[in-house]
């Protein structure tokens, strides 16, 4: 059998020299670019001005405050410059370790399970079946109700003395006395995480549903013909196509979870014995419970840096697709 002779491809990826100026070149050209677009800047000046005042200045002030020790009576004129002392104190304190551990647990587990359950839900409601729109509506409810409502609902579900969960378990004879959920230092955080997952998975579901609908049908047919069963198709075709949506979803979920305050604060206030204290509640407590603005500022600067890092990856993930499309 003779080989088929190949013909030369008619389109090639662009050669490196043609891809445009490098980073150094772009920075050097910046002043000229700005000068050329000066009238454009005029248009955005009002909005930029408001943003500077409302966002940039408070951030600057908070960062500045983080280098001071502030008095409990909030006589800000009496604050003392202590440099990085606040940071040192935070990073070496025991509570920081346990609060960080709690925060990581909270963020990672909430994000992961919200994603997985959201993916499952998206797969289920992706196909047509009778009653589909009702199911979709019901699945959206946790996302739609307010955090405070959700917190109270779950608080009473979990209540150690009069909770619905305990009541049901006892009636079904699964346990013979109430289980201590929210007031148990080992169970409180997992319980809160479950409530958080319940609240968040519809978001992942919606994002992934949109992604699923972008998977070309032909790929599924090709895979079917190639002998791939449902699971193999999901793994080899659906998941890789969902990669960019998944990255975005997971990053957004992580950002939300790092910031989430209401559920924890309303349900346990950070207790019992600090077992559900996360960064945000700790910062809130430092600022408004203990009125130690200096330390709270330092703490929030640390959190801010971490969020910025995540935000950077988020933007990178979002625009990676664009770059690929333009270059290919």
């Amino acid at each position: 059998m003779s080989a088929i002779t190949g013909s030369q491809p008619t389109t090639e990826p662009p050669a490196p020299e043609e891809r445009g100026p490098g980073l150094a070149g772009r920075i050097a050209a910046l002043p000229g670019d700005i000068a050329r677009h000066w009238s454009d800047y005029l248009y955005i000046l009002p909005a930029l001005g408001i943003m500077l005042v409302v966002i940039a200045y408070p951030i600057f002030y908070t960062v500045r405050l983080s280098f001071y020790s502030t008095p409990a009576n909030l006589a800000m004129d009496d604050k003392i410059w202590i440099g990085l002392d606040n940071y040192r104190r935070i990073l070496t304190s025991d509570s920081f370790r346990s609060v960080t551990r709690n925060t990581l647990e909270w963020t990672v587990f909430s994000t992961f399970f919200a994603y997985v359950i959201g993916l499952g839900a998206a797969l289920v409601i992706q196909r047509e079946f009778p009653g589909r729109s009702i199911v979709r509506g019901v699945l959206l409810i946790p996302w739609v109700i307010s955090y405070v409502s959700a917190a109270y609902i779950w608080k009473w579900l979990y209540h150690s003395d009069y909770g619905l969960i305990n009541d049901t378990l006892i009636r079904l004879n699964i346990v013979d006395q109430n289980i201590n959920i929210l007031d148990n230092i080992h169970r409180a955080l997992p319980a809160l995480i479950i409530a958080n997952i319940w609240k968040e998975f519809p978001f992942a579901m919606i994002m992934l549903l949109a992604g699923l609908q972008g998977v070309p049908d032909q790929l599924h047919r090709a895979a079917k013909v190639d002998g791939a069963g449902t699971w193999a198709r999901f793994w080899h075709i659906t998941m890789p196509q969902l990669k960019s949506v998944s990255v975005v979803t997971i990053l957004l979920l992580m950002l939300t979870n790092l910031n989430s305050f209401t559920l924890v604060w309303v349900m346990t206030g950070g207790g019992p014995a600090g077992s559900t204290d996360i960064w945000i509640t700790q910062i809130y407590q430092l600022a408004f419970g203990r009125t130690r603005f200096g330390v709270a500022s330092a703490y929030s600067v640390i959190l801010f840096l971490i969020m910025m890092a995540l935000g950077y990856f988020y933007v990178k993930a979002l625009t990676r697709g664009d770059a690929e499309r333009e270059g290919a």
């Binding site: 070309p216 032909q218 790929l219 047919r221 090709a222 895979a223 080899h236 075709i237 890789p240 990669k243």
Partner: peptide, 9 residues
Amino acid sequence: FQNYALYPN
């Protein structure tokens, strides 16, 4: 297939 349906990743 018409669009070849090669597995892109």
